[in-house]
Every structure is written in structure tokens, then in C-alpha cells.
Design a protein around this nucleic acid. Structure first.
Lengths: 229, 229
DNA sequence: TAGATTGTTAATCGATTAACAATC
DNA sequence: TAGATTGTTAATCGATTAACAATC
């Protein structure tokens, strides 16, 4: 039962070309942060970068950066630093975003529609290759460029689409039913926007995004009588 | 410079009615989880609940649950458990979601529009009281029930609205400019959907939601040759 | 060579889990 | 009273930071 963002839901998969000794989830999140920064940086044509440059740019401690990389091998030259292009490429490869990843989206509501139209996804090698819904009133219509397909044709379609990643933007009530269908169709990881705990087999990974929870944690941080507008 | 979801960006505020001894952010996230469960539970008219019941329902270790509560006082009766209503009320009060919280949203694009229409917000005491944009083509139009207002009238409007919470759904490029205006208008906490690092004063708290980062971490977890569709 | 910066080991810090006396 | 369950202290675990030998 892999669950909740911060829970230790790592798998034990091995990669021949890397050490991959149980990097913590927090390290992976930071790798994604480094990658985003390196992608921005690329335009400037900078050649090398040091761990303390990374610290300045991202706020992550230089030692932390080097430690995070160390889970996956050696990346830099002592006394010199890291080659920007190489580093970017290798981090992308570790995170498997070096090639385009097919993604399916389930739930063609407001949020689903917004995500389909979000340009940040294709810009980062995530391509939405299929949109599904269980509402027969929606099936057949187009959302942006995607025809909305019947959720019950998911397994069939995915033999062709080969998506391993699913984005789930259905109401909480239907979440578990849909998840079971996703798993059955060969989906390996799920980004869940429904504020519901969903159960999946051990070889499937879930990350939950919950707007209300984010706002609630923020709400806590409002100072008691901060009325000085 | 309070930043990034997992960084220690807690303030040192004190509450007269509670201990408030530096609860970790992770504990606050779990409190929000408990609250969600307790809200669901309420309908069943259950009177008391034990920490091990919580463990069964949420997956959070019973000792962890008790520890999380202990940051804020005593909540249960030894040998008996916790009164559901009381527990719900007190957690809601700690997280300041016991009363309706006014929220403003900046950026009336696809995502902003989806969030405005999301029923989960009002259901959890977050009320969107103002929608702003810097695109003059959008200003004046209505989004759901909200007239889109000019971002430059934000400070003026917020003397009336008194929102402390802002949701930021503008493009990355404009994020920092808008954030400065938010801070100037008295906003204390920001839920940032732009994939950009934003700088705020020490008394303002930011949480970042980044879809691409979530997908990237998931992408990592795809097993190398998991082709068994 | 001298200066810089890596990768890694050790030290520190913080968070989670276990254990148990207190108490309903 | 006996059984159950709390709140808290102590033990464990894991992650972050510091330090430094290796090396470019």
C-alpha cells in the first residue's frame, strides 16, 4: 500500500549504469530541482558549475547536493566542478525524463482540462497521449486536441499507448474504482489529485497532491493577530 | 527567504491556548490528514476513537499520532481514547480552519479557473473572495461568480477583503513581481503554482506546488523494463 | 606547484518508533 | 479492580551537515 507524499514508498529497482543505493525521496525531489535550474542555465552557455554555485542558485546546501549525486555515481572533477551539459543529461537520465514519457489523464473536469493545456508538461518531456472519463456525456468530445475516451476502453487503448504514468483528476468517490482499472491497464505510477486515500499493489507508486492540505498547512502559519495590512 | 515545501520554514508564533513547541512541518501535514479523516467520520456519529483506530484508517503509526498531538497539548483520556467531535474541533482550531478563511487568487488562467471552481475549497472553509490578473483583456470579465480585478488594485481591495492567504497561478515570468505586490498588500502565506523560486520576507511563508516535479519523482520510480501490460 | 573542489566518511541533528508509568 | 489507552521519555533510525583526504 504505497501512499502519501512523504512516506517511504521507494521500490528496490536496480539500474545497471548507476549505484542507486536507496536515495531518499527528498533527494529525488532535490534532483528535480537541480534539473530545473540546469535547464534554465543551459541558455547562458555556461560550461562548468560547482556545488556552491548550486547552493547559491537553489538554496540547497552544497554538501547536500554532492551527497544527493553520490547515490548515483560520480559526476564532477575535483578542483574543477561539474560540466553543465553532462550533469543535466545524467540527472535527466536518472529521473527518466531524458526521453518523452507518455502520460494518460483520467477525469476530464476543470482541473483535468487545465492540466492537459499546461505547456509545462510537454516542455519537460511529459506528453499526454490519452484522456479518459467515465461520464458518457463527455466521451467523444474533444478537450484541446484530445478526444475524451471511455474509461472502460483504457486497458485496450493502453496496449498501444504504453503509458506507465497516469494523472488522476476524478472526484474522490470514483478514485479507487478508477485506480483499480489503471493498475489493470499496466500503469506503474499515479499522480493523484483526488483527496482520497487510494490502495494500490506494492509495485505501483502513488503521489498525492492535495490543495486543501497545502492551504491548511499554510493556514496554520498565519500569525494570530497579524492585522497590519 | 522562506521557500520550498520541505524546508524548515516554521515561524516562532505563540498561541496562548496551546504549547506550540515547534511542531515539524511533517506533523502539520499529518494533522491535516487526521482532520480530513475525522471530518469523514463525523457522519457516522461515532463517539470516541483511539490512536490505533487512527493508524488503521490513515496508515500513520499510533505513536506518531500521539506525538503529533503532544506538540499542542493533551487531547484524550487514558484508557478511553479521544472524543471525535472535540478532537476534530481542536485540530481545526490549531490549523486555523475552524472559521472561514478568505483567500485571493492571482492569475485567471486555466489552472486558476479550475481552482476557483473547485468545491473542495469552500467545503474546507477556504473562500475565494477576490480574483486578480494583470492581463487587461481579462479584467472586468467574470470567472464563475468572481469579477476579475486588476492586480494593481489588489492592495486597495485587500484593505476590505483582509485576505492573508493567496493562491498564485500566474506564469513563472511574472511570479516575483506579483509576489512583491502580494506582500505589500498584507498577504502572509502563499500557495505558489508557478515553477519558479520566489523570494519573500521572513514573515511570509510560501509553499510550492510543482506538477512537473511530482511527475518527475514518479517517473524515477518506473521500473526499467516493466513492459508486462 | 598551489588553489579549488570533489566524493565520502564521520559527526550532528531531527524525526520516528518503542516502551512504560500514569490514569481513566 | 482489571483492561485499555493515553502522554511522554528514551531508544532508534535516517537524513543533513561538516570535515577532509584525494585529485584535478
Amino acid at each position: 500500500m504505497h501512499e502519501l507524499t512523504r512516506m517511504p514508498h521507494t521500490e528496490g529497482e536496480k539500474q545497471d549504469f548507476m549505484k542507486d543505493s536507496k536515495a531518499p525521496i527528498a533527494a529525488l525531489e532535490r534532483l528535480a530541482t537541480y534539473l530545473r535550474y540546469l535547464n534554465e542555465l543551459n541558455r547562458d552557455g555556461l560550461q562548468t558549475i560547482s556545488s556552491s554555485d548550486i547552493e547559491k542558485a537553489t538554496g540547497v546546501h552544497a554538501a547536500q547536493f554532492r551527497k544527493d549525486l553520490s547515490y548515483f555515481g560520480e559526476f564532477g572533477k575535483p578542483g574543477v566542478g561539474y560540466n553543465v551539459d553532462e550533469l543535466r543529461g545524467r540527472i535527466a537520465r536518472i529521473l527518466k525524463v531524458d526521453n518523452e514519457q507518455p502520460v494518460i489523464l483520467i477525469g476530464a473536469g476543470n482541473l483535468g482540462s487545465a492540466l492537459i493545456g499546461y505547456t509545462g508538461l510537454p516542455q519537460n518531456n511529459f506528453r499526454i497521449v490519452g484522456v479518459f472519463d467515465n461520464d458518457h456525456h463527455k466521451v467523444g468530445y474533444k478537450l484541446w486536441d484530445n478526444e475524451i475516451l471511455d474509461i472502460d476502453t483504457l486497458k485496450e487503448h493502453n496496449t498501444r499507448l504504453c503509458a506507465k504514468i497516469a494523472i488522476l483528476t476524478v472526484p474522490s468517490m470514483s478514485a479507487q474504482v478508477v485506480v483499480d482499472k489503471l493498475v489493470d491497464a499496466g500503469i506503474k505510477v499515479i499522480l493523484n489529485f483526488a483527496p482520497a486515500s487510494i490502495r494500490v499493489p506494492d509495485n505501483v507508486v502513488v503521489r498525492n497532491v492535495c490543495f486543501v492540505q497545502e492551504l491548511t498547512v499554510l493556514s496554520y502559519h498565519i500569525t494570530p493577530h497579524a492585522n497590519g495590512i
